[in-house]
Design a protein around this nucleic acid. Sequence first.
DNA 1: TTCCTTTGTGCGGGAATATAGAACTATTGA
DNA 2: TCAATAGTTCTATATTCCCGCACAAAGGAA
Lengths: 115, 115
Amino acid sequence: MVYLKTMRPLIHPSVEAITVEGILHALSDPVRVQILVGIAKAECPQSCAKYQMVENRELPKSTLSQHFKVLREAGLIRSERKGVELHNSTRYAEICERFGPLLTAILDAYAAERQ
Amino acid sequence: MVYLKTMRPLIHPSVEAITVEGILHALSDPVRVQILVGIAKAECPQSCAKYQMVENRELPKSTLSQHFKVLREAGLIRSERKGVELHNSTRYAEICERFGPLLTAILDAYAAERQ
DNA sequence: TTCCTTTGTGCGGGAATATAGAACTATTGA
DNA sequence: TCAATAGTTCTATATTCCCGCACAAAGGAA
């Protein structure tokens, strides 16, 4: 197999380019919700690999990578390359400023659902 | 072509069976959001056909039927057969009682997005 | 430098989901 | 009985998602 394309730069939409549709689609998958909550709870940015265990099973790396891409391109997280890792942090504050109680309501509803 | 299956009964989940995941998935499609908003705004239950025009184009009937099915099975609307039509109404109150500000936050965010 | 290790990405095939045209069901009304 | 209307099911096609595998990119060791 011959690779034609090299690794693409990480895409982070500007706050204005973030859409409700994108947020809802990203958070309609419970795996991504768990990743986002984990990132939000960590006191310093963590690598993707830290979130490989979801509901007692190990996610394949390529799947994990796709989930991070969806969260990133929806504007929910920011990822910075630090050496060989990505350091991920939430864009919670920006989203709250632009979309009001939306994100909080979604995360609260998921949290309440797990009793 | 020979049809093996007859028309299935309409499925409405109980309030307890409604999930955040299902709600977010259903509302991650702007067409379904517009349908839901239309149903919520109408002062009496309307037929599906009333929502065939979306963003200046006419949706195929089969597509519209699928969108209504997704909304119904996510627990967002209730559909009752009245003769040859369905009469659709929202389950807004039930969802607010179970999920707090979730649905309001989503609909407000979409509304704010269209300036 | 060169090699090895680690973290994450690009590609491709199969599975699952979505779209829409056409045939069909089910009901009403003439 | 027939025609019209509203919505559903079937089917084919298109798109999206999942994941194994090969690879990229960076760091560390010798």
